[in-house]
């Protein structure tokens, strides 16, 4: 791993005082990497990245972005600091047009840069260009995710943080979203991603962490983590549907 863009050390965070959900999690994201955070339901994955994004109170630990301390900076300053967050749901403004959704996120850009930057987003996401006047609430699920990601990328973030981008999407759109993320990565954007869909996420990720009970329990290269039997059995629910594992444990029949 080269230079660390995001460095989270012993983070403790939770919605209520005295009830930490994230209990001493440490993760790092290197420049240009895609890092995936996996873990069972209730492990605190979403809480972890919401805390990083300034949306959940932090009670301990530090978050460094490019070496500077951004721990518990107010959420609305994160974009300026270089961290763009894409929430899992309700991540677009449903009554505004696609174009206004992009424009409203350009607050930190110089006014004369904005049209060109929106043009670049349209070039990267032709679907959005075609629907620029469409009210965002009328977009399909996949296009909404696309808009949410474009909106986050428009400010040249140092790191793009996504909370389960495939949640609630039909399989066709899930494939589309991961294809999009793989494409973004090629352009050199650093990505931190929380996902339930472990298989798809590990396929595009460089490294992954497994979070259990609010703590990082396992770290590894994404492709190796997928084949690690201990990790698979313990934490990756999806793995149980894998025919190879079923054969190995002697029950069920391979399709």
């Amino acid at each position: 791993m080269s230079q660390r863009v995001l460095d989270v050390r012993n983070l403790e965070a939770g919605y209520e005082p005295g009830v930490p959900i994230v209990r001493g999690a440490s993760i790092t994201v290197g420049k240009g990497e895609i890092v995936v955070v996996l873990g069972p339901n209730g492990a605190g994955k979403s809480t972890l990245i919401k805390a990083i994004a300034g949306l959940v109170p932090i009670t301990g630990g530090t978050v460094l972005l490019d070496g500077s301390d951004i721990t518990a900076a107010p959420a609305h300053t994160m974009v300026r600091l270089g961290l763009a967050f894409v929430p899992q749901t309700e991540n677009i403004f449903p009554l505004m047009s696609v174009e206004d959704n992009l424009k409203v996120a350009c607050g930190i850009l110089k006014p004369r840069e904005i049209p060109a930057r929106i043009g670049e987003m349209y070039a990267a996401f032709p679907d959005l260009a075609r629907q620029r006047k469409t009210v965002a609430g009328n977009l399909s699920g996949g296009q909404r995710q696309m808009l949410a990601v474009a909106r986050a990328l428009i400010v040249h973030p140092k790191v793009l943080v996504l909370d389960e981008p495939s949640a609630g999407l039909s399989p066709k759109f899930v494939a589309m979203v991961f294809e999009m993320l793989a494409g973004i990565r090629i352009s050199g954007v650093t990505i931190l991603l929380v996902e339930q869909n472990a298989k798809a996420a590990l396929a595009i990720g460089d490294r992954a962490y497994v979070l259990v009970e609010g703590k990082d329990r396992h770290e590894g290269v994404a492709s190796e983590l997928w084949n690690d039997p201990v990790v698979a059995e313990l934490y990756l629910g999806q793995r149980r549907l894998d025919p190879e594992r079923d054969r190995h444990s002697g029950k069920g029949s391979a399709a």
Binding site: L55, H76, E90, M96, R151, V155
Partner: peptide, 24 residues
């Protein structure tokens, strides 16, 4: 204007408005 769009954004989703960098 950016101010007006921020007002619309805030009325539609206050949490997301903060995430996209709007000073509520």
């Amino acid at each position: 204007t950016q101010t007006g769009r921020s007002m619309q954004a805030l009325s539609q989703n206050a949490a997301l408005a903060r995430i996209v960098g709007i000073d509520v």
